[in-house]
Design a protein around this nucleic acid. Structure first.
Length: 731
RNA sequence: GGGCGGUUAGCUCAGUGGUAGAGCGUUUCAUUGACAUUGAAAAGGUCACAGGUUCAAUCCCUGUACCGCCCACCA
């Protein structure tokens, strides 16, 4: 006897039970699928890593969209009989997590991390990260994500640390990681360096001052930051600029508001003749561009600002003052001395640290870098006997990390969807500078370098006393870059690595194309001589009804858990899929989710109707299908084929819509209605034929709907096929 | 400054070289029926604008306008 079905589908009650039954079945893991014949031993593989959510809090709608998309791909692959694995994990997100905990501690206890000390502070961060991790895992489950929990990883756990150390050593040995004193992006608020990609620009109004250093200096310069001029060692002009040609090569000793400066006039093509006075005061210590110019011209470097964005030069009136205050003082002195020629209000882009909001202060610092332009032989870093598998980088040839990133996509081994992002990706590579990978924060992988006097050991702490570990930690993206293979056991030569790498798809938001996707390609190319994945599928950002980015602080964020509680995970998933073309931002409203909740009810009730008309006992005798019924079955095949093609093409929005439309407006509205009378008043053979048709169409539809709305389809399926799981039924 | 995307029904968005599609909303009708979280029907669009290619353009090309995003050292 079948169980009764209520007229309402109660997602809240059933979903957690269904998830548990899936998990208990073990079918999220490929081994179990092979063991039970769901997938053949030598079946094609489908592997995907979950972009690990940061352990900084809770999941938002962007995560929900990501989980929905990936779960559709994964469930589809599994039902198709592929050996399917989806690896979950979380990201320690070094700076993001540390700054979050720091600000919480400061709010509550008015203490900073130095008050607590490294050990105690890390204990606190780890506690926070672990709580956050549990919340996230729970949310991933609520979404119905069929990830293989037996393979869960954390970017900061032991196996991943081993991978990081190995990767670092390989790159160091290849000469790609070096330590250098360069001008970098310093975040005075977070007290750490950040990479170019972690700097965002905010437009603000600024004063643009034009003045001379001193009355006896021949050239006027312009700047928005007069206080940095205390660190000037040159003035640069364009070589073709007739106004200044006569001065090039000359050197001047000037008195700049009480501070002596030695200024050389240099010619450099980087200077724009038409901007400002056409002459640029060169501050090698406090501008990355000026620093590069200083390198070219062998100019001395003079630091006048410290790590707290306070002045270290300029005499007693200025020293120790914040840069903004110093700016005012100097401007006033210039006015008083009659040297100020012009002051204008201009819009200016200032650089801000993405995570902390601190205003970036370029400073010269000794840091670790990854060289993206240095040539090396790929084979030297690969395991013995292995050669480059990257198209366009022949075995044994010299290459660079930039080239690896470029060729991996150019050679067609990685397809980026939507395609337009390929060009954006190339453009980013062209402009890439060496990657600053050391951070002065405490939470993260420690730089695996130990020193003892002049001696240095990389990758491993040597035996013996007196070795000092590098104080810094690694950029979080260094470990994320290893994610597709560090999760599969690398640097060990595991079966997982051999079976599932390169992964099939990498699905993530287009906003981390550079941060993450590019770095994975870099790391994988260098360490494995291969690509990390075949297809990159980029989804858009989830925005609110007005198109604004959802954020907690704006109060416009829709909480996925709240929506799941209210309308069910299936409805939430569908609302994030349909109408969301790849790479395009989408607007989400509660109304939309509610609409799809109605669809889950429709599935439930249509199934209930079919079940209610199930013949009692076995159908005896033969029956033929009517012409209409044959037509329905043929139409179904077409619809199914369309859904399939759309999924194969990563057009999930179209696949979802097709499935939705077929079920509601063809199966329920047309076919059920047409068969109703037969079921009620037809002859026994007609009844049997009608039921048979409906059940076939229903169960078939449940299959192609399953990846999109896994819970309700599973719930219904088990009414018809008790003891079976739709999760692993043949597509 | 460079690049990219968008402009399609009241709203949110798909889509296609050959009489324009969905969801929501609106209007009318139906209904003790699997489902009111319903069904049937209807209204509603010179597919931003201007040129061009074509037998045929909403779709391809060029340009313009507005909106949005990304990148960039204009000090």
């Amino acid at each position: 006897m079948e169980e009764e079905m209520d007229s309402r589908y109660s997602a809240g009650e059933l979903e957690p039970k269904i998830y548990e039954s899936w998990q208990k079945s073990g079918y999220f893991a490929p081994e179990k699928c092979v063991k039970d014949g769901v997938a053949k031993k030598d079946a094609e593989t489908f592997s995907i890593v979950l972009p690990p959510p940061n352990v900084t809090g809770v999941l938002h709608m962007g995560h929900a969209a990501m989980l929905a998309i990936e779960d559709i791909l994964v469930r589809y692959a599994r039902m198709k009989g592929k050996r399917t694995v989806w690896i979950p994990g979380t990201d320690h997100a070094a700076i993001a997590t540390q700054s979050k905990v720091e600000s919480e501690i400061y709010k509550k206890e008015k203490k900073n991390r130095h008050d607590l000390g490294r050990e105690e502070f890390l204990r606190r961060v780890e506690k926070f990260a672990s709580e956050s991790h549990d919340t996230i895992v729970n949310q991933i489950k609520r979404m119905g994500a069929s990830v293989d929990w037996t393979r869960e990883a954390f970017t900061l756990d032991e196996p991943r640390n081993a991978a990081v150390k190995t990767a670092f050593k390989e790159m160091y040995d290849a000469g790609l990681i070096y330590r250098g004193n360069k001008v970098i992006n310093w975040d005075p608020k977070g007290q750490t360096t950040v990479s170019d990609d972690e700097v965002v620009h905010e437009e603000r109004k600024a004063k643009f001052y034009t003045f001379k250093y001193s009355p006896d200096f021949p050239i006027s310069i312009s700047t928005t930051r007069p206080e940095t001029k205390l660190g000037d060692t040159a003035v640069a002009v364009h070589p073709d600029d007739v106004r200044y040609k006569q001065y090039v090569g000359k050197e001047y000793d000037v008195d700049f508001v009480g501070t002596p400066l030695h200024i050389k006039i240099i010619a450099d093509t980087e200077v724009d003749k038409d901007f400002g006075t056409g002459a640029l005061g060169v501050t090698p210590a406090h501008s990355i561009i000026d620093w590069e110019m200083a390198e070219r011209h062998k100019l001395p470097l003079k630091q006048v600002i410290n790590e707290y964005a306070k002045m270290t030069a300029g005499g007693p009136e200025i020293e120790g003052k914040k840069t903004a205050e110093a700016r005012e003082i100097i401007a006033e002195k210039l006015r008083a001395a009659g040297l100020m020629e012009k002051e204008e209000e201009v819009p200016q882009n200032i650089s801000v640290a993405e995570r902390t909001g601190g205003i970036i202060e370029p400073l010269p610092k000794l840091q670790w870098f990854v060289s993206v332009n240095k040539k090396f032989k790929l084979e030297n870093s690969l395991p013995a006997g292995q050669a480059s598998k990257i198209n366009g980088i022949p075995a044994g040839s010299e290459t660079t990390l930039k080239e690896i990133m470029k060729k991996s996509v150019e050679g067609g081994q990685i397809k980026i969807l939507p395609e337009r992002f390929e060009r954006i990706y190339y453009h980013w590579i062209e402009n890439l500078r060496d990657w600053n990978i050391s951070r002065q924060i405490w939470y993260g992988h420690r730089i695996p370098v130990w020193t003892k006097g002049e001696k240095m050991s990389v990758g491993k702490k040597p035996f013996g006393f007196g070795w000092v570990e590098d104080e810094d930690t690694l950029d979080t993206w260094f470990s994320s870059g290893l994610w597709t293979f560090s999760t599969l056991g690398w640097p060990k030569n595991t079966a997982d690595l051999a079976t599932f790498h390169p992964t099939t798809v990498l699905e993530t938001g287009y906003d981390i194309l550079f941060f993450w996707v590019a770095r994975m390609i870099l790391m994988t190319g260098f360490l494995l001589g291969d690509v990390p994945f075949r297809t990159v599928y980029l989804h858009g950002l989830v925005r609110d009804e007005k198109g604004k980015k959802m954020s907690k602080s704006l109060g416009n964020a829709i909480d996925p858990l709240e929506m799941i509680d209210k309308y069910g995970a299936d409805a939430t998933r569908l609302s994030l899929i349909i109408g969301a073309a790849p790479g395009n931002d989408m607007k989400l409203s509660e109304d939309k989710i509610r609409g799809y909740r109605n669809f889950t009810t429709k599935i439930w009730n249509a199934s209930r109707f079919v079940l209610m008309n199930r013949p009692v006992g076995a159908v005896s005798g033969k029956f033929d299908l009517s012409d209409d019924e044959k037509k329905y079955l043929a139409e179904f095949e077409t619809a199914k084929k369309e859904v399939e093609t759309h999924i194969d093409n990563f057009e999930l929005h179209l696949a979802g819509e097709k499935a939705y439309h077929y079920f509601w407006h063809t199966f329920a509205d047309v076919i059920i209605e047409a068969e109703k009378n037969k079921l009620k008043e037809g002859a026994p053979e007609e009844k049997a034929a009608a039921y048979e048709t409906l059940e076939t169409l229903l169960l078939g539809s449940l299959k192609f709907l399953h990846p999109f709305v896994p819970y309700v389809t599973e719930a219904v399926y088990q009414k018809f096929r008790p003891g079976k799981l739709l999760l692993v039924e043949k597509w």
